[in-house]
Design a protein around this nucleic acid. Sequence first.
RNA 1: GCCCGGGUGGUGGAAUGGUAGACACUGGGGAUUUAAAAUCCCUUGCCUGAAAAGGCGUGCGGGUUCAAGUCCCGCCCCGGGCACCA
Length: 857
Amino acid sequence: MASKHNEYNFSEIEPKWQNHWVEQKTYQAVDFAQQPTYYVLDMFPYPSGAGLHIGHPEGYTASDALKRYKKACGFNVLHPMGWDAFGLPTEQYAIKTGKHPRDTTETNVARFNQQLTQLGFAYDWEREINTTDPGYFRWTQWIFSQLFRKGLAYVDEKPVWFCPELGTVLANEEVLNTPEGPRSERGSYPVERRPIRQWVLRITAYAERLIAGLKELDWPDSTKRLQENWIGRSEGAEITFEIDGGKGSLEVFTTRPDTLYGATYMVIAPEHPLLESITTAEQSEAVQAYAEKAKRKSDLERAELSKEKSGVWTGATATNPINGKSIPIWVADYVLMTYGTGAIMAVPAHDSRDFEFAQAFDLEIIQVIEDDGSAEKDAEGLLTEAYTGPGKLMQSGSLSGKDSEAAKQAVIEQLAPEGRGKPEINYKLRDWLFSRQRYWGEPFPVLWVAPEDYQKLDASLKPEGDPVSAKIDGVERCALVLPETQLPLELPEVESYTPSPDGQSPLAKAGDWLQVYLDPANGTTSSEAHEGWIPATRETNTMPQWAGSCWYYLRYIDPKNDKAPIDPEKEKYWGCPDLYIGGAEHAVLHLLYARFWHHVLYDLGVVSNPEPFKKLFHQGIILGEDGEKMSKSRGNVVNPETIIESYGADALRLYLMFLGPLEASKPWNTKGIEGIARFLRKVWRLVLDENGKPRLSDDKALDPESARTLHATIKKVTEDYEALSFNTAISQMMICVNQLAKTDATPRESTEIFLQLLAPLAPHIAEELWERMGHTKSIAHAGWPEHDPAQLVQDKVKIVFQVNGKYRGDADLPAGVDQESAIVAAKAHPKVAAFLEGKTLRREIYVPGKIVNLVAN
RNA sequence: GCCCGGGUGGUGGAAUGGUAGACACUGGGGAUUUAAAAUCCCUUGCCUGAAAAGGCGUGCGGGUUCAAGUCCCGCCCCGGGCACCA
């Protein structure tokens, strides 16, 4: 591009300043400095082989700009970066090429690092973390140990999604519902259900706190609601129905105990443990066939067939505890074993699912809540749809006439003394499936020992409460966690990264690593047997990628600590991130899991606040030029590197922010960046003349109009940076440059103020021009300008004249003009007068400094 | 079905209830230049009109208000999330 030294040559100046910030440690965060702190956090990237895509620099530009702005304002700013480097693609690559994931990760990290630097993101690299670094994951393992010891980790044989192609188990959220059936999110391979031994974290124990904690958070409302719905708290009652014929009892969960009189049948899930024992001989064959069929269906298939309800009568009946009525018990797959008790009381009149089912199988429908005419009915006055609203009870014995809300309580109170009912709360949230049958993840710091050896163990190795046990290779074993001294537990070298076809982790083949001896007194391990030591087998599952990202924001505060995950004093000094910027795709899982761990760490006294992320912001998605999501297959991918080559990093940064509001999804438009490039060249020429010398005027002050623009710009840009409204900040800076460019030269102070405002978003050009104006210190140390309100005061204001709400003219009147004079001026305006002609003035409105509206007819 | 967002010129977008379309892109016209790039100036919502001017315009239909893109009610469309959670 430009070669003359007096032209804007971004490819020369950008690397220069990038090196400068690194060498001078310009953006290093200093522990315990006597300044207010500001911690701005980005969601750290997975260092994939593909390098950065345009979505990364969007959020990262925002945080980089905010960081530079806050530093200028005098904050001790912490803005770190790291790598979420465990994960499937690297492992897949290892399977394909035999290359160790560690090496691939190293290469990818180096590339990402270089790309981020090229964009001018000045992180405090001394705090860089990598989830695959043993110095990091020893503390991930440590946190797991704490969860284990608190009884929050257990083992369960769970039917989980298994993907034969990837050779691994997938979490529900990694499986997509496609027209071809369930598929893996990565690669879109077919998946199937398989029961496999799994580690599970008891996140449900924190459900209540995770909901309550949301209240105080400054998060997008939609994200809070998403989490709330995901946790899915519902209040209701657990009611016990006696099964007729002395076959025991059946518990159901309902949110509508008030409709109990309308319960005309019951339904249990096909997986319900009582199904076999209650089914009568006559119905046995049909029930068994039905249960078999249901088992083969995936959850997705069950849901898709939702329009047609299916089910079979078990032959059994139960007694409605409120009225002694005998009602049939059906089995149907619209009832889920995984929610509530796996059984329901069906009230077809007031639940749409039960209504559909009752219609399909011709079951009794009894209306017990008055609908006041709001429900659809047929000619005979019978419901043609369920009425799910509130109302007065009817056909409900002594409760008839009571309001439904009050009746909920009344029913529970009536049943409670006999032990047939109690208030109950249920959550949609399920416990967190926490293991993967993969190589490239954190190994569990867990050993399995024989039950008799387990007795000999020191209490510190065991969980609170019951032992965690499981069948390993058909033999009963108990789990213990390694003591802190044995951490980190590193991954063994293996010959193959491929899981075995039965879904076992590649670690299951790491013979030497697998078998160890253990000192029961303190958990020390060795490959050699010692007197009194006991044999143990290592856990072969690894942790999911979420594990490392659950607490990384804490580690940045104290990244090299080998005594604790984080030093308490440093934790108190920095606190939690003041702002967390990241994509909305993590609205539920990552942000919920991280909150869960943080609450646990709070209980353990590791952190001093129960919630990790006070303020959250989601940047939108950059779409392709065609308005579609960028993807290789669509061929609409924009590569940041090519943009930097042709326009420079400053232009890319500004343009990304100029596209629209940070939170909006917006299409990329390559032509649009021209406007930004033009703006930057204009800034260059505003500061330097054609000889490359500062274009300074001898005057101390700007002309009044320029001064007003400059101070309005200081005000607007400051407010907009605070609000992350970078698009409008840039517009205002364009207005400012256009105004200042009208003059032959600019006072030094004005030019400098403008560069200070520009620096957070376009730091390279700002630094370069700052230096060329004679400064020897970085603009990062120049502070932040304040606007002078006096400069904004105008002696004349434009008053708009309206007649009947329509614009008919305007006039510049003295600021602070009173109502009377303003209205006189309006009436004097020829066009206003013309529109008033022949009409009667009904009303005169004056909004001070803005508008006169004359109402006439 | 339920829960969130969002519908403004040819395009991206801007607008504490107070002139809708700031700031840009694109298009059109011009200046400069041997030419190009760069730069600068004018113009660019729609309709009527030669012009002056007027009318219409923020997805659709109502309403509140002196005044509505903005507030309220009822729809339509697009995007995202959840989906038999009793």
